[in-house]
Write a protein that binds this DNA or RNA. Structure first.
Length: 213
DNA sequence: CAGTCGATTCACT
DNA sequence: GTGAATCGACTGA
């Protein structure tokens, strides 16, 4: 049982490449009206400031990425592919726009609630295997964008203190689905051998739909 | 202001 | 392994 104390803003007010691996093994707590869902983080990706070509913040502040430029210890939730949400935790001082994308984890509490939200999942290790799956399983959407995740253990969303994953089990490599210059940075971190970690996929540009006439 | 395509997932073959 | 689904922020005219 992890400590029932949330991580502090100071934890997140550090370089994102420090914070990202330090989050592995920690417990994300989502309190829903139906009950709590808890997840042990097994895979994350760092998005390193507004000079990172792979980051949504690369072309400066916009309405969508505004919370990335905000204070550390808050959520950045974005809508993608017309149907999914992804959850990031903002790092570093105000204005620096770094964040950790939460890509996968093991549901340790509330698997039944998560399964209801994830009818396509056939095994427990698939409930939160991928960033959109993780957000779906935890009932995270736009409403949590900008939310302070350091508020308290009973807040709608938070990350608890407790032992991080052993450094010897942490691996890192290129980020999934990131193309261009940002593709080479080895800023994806995961727990070696964990069955909830999602498979790596290289960036694949979408084929053009055949136009009519 | 229309066109493009994304930090993805799922059903099917 | 391949292609569809589905929306809206961002881009460049």
């Amino acid at each position: 049982m992890p400590h029932r104390t949330p991580l502090t803003h100071d934890f997140f007010d550090r370089p994102v490449l420090e914070v990202a691996p330090d989050l592995l093994g920690r417990t994300l707590v989502r309190t829903t009206p139906d009950g709590p869902i808890e997840l042990r983080l097994t895979e994350v990706e760092a998005y390193n400031g507004s000079t990172d070509p792979g980051s949504h913040a690369y072309r400066g502040r916009t309405e969508r990425n505004a919370s990335m430029f905000g204070p550390p210890g808050h959520a950045y939730v974005y809508f993608i592919y017309g149907m999914w949400f992804s959850l990031n935790l903002v790092c570093g001082p105000v204005g620096t726009a770094s964040g950790v994308l939460l890509r996968a984890g093991e549901i340790t509490t509330g698997a039944e609630l998560a399964q209801k939200r994830r009818p396509a999942a056939r095994k427990e290790n698939e409930l939160a295997k991928g960033p959109a799956r993780l957000a779906t399983a935890l009932d995270v959407d736009r409403g949590l964008n900008g939310f302070d995740i350091c508020a308290g253990p009973d807040a709608p969303l938070g990350v608890l203190t407790g032992a991080p994953a052993l450094a010897g089990r942490v691996r890192n490599g290129p980020r999934t689905g990131v193309g261009g210059e940002g593709a080479t940075h080895p800023w994806r971190f995961w727990i070696e051998g964990d069955p909830t970690v999602s498979p790596y996929r290289a960036h694949a540009p979408r084929r053009r739909r055949p136009s009519e006439a």
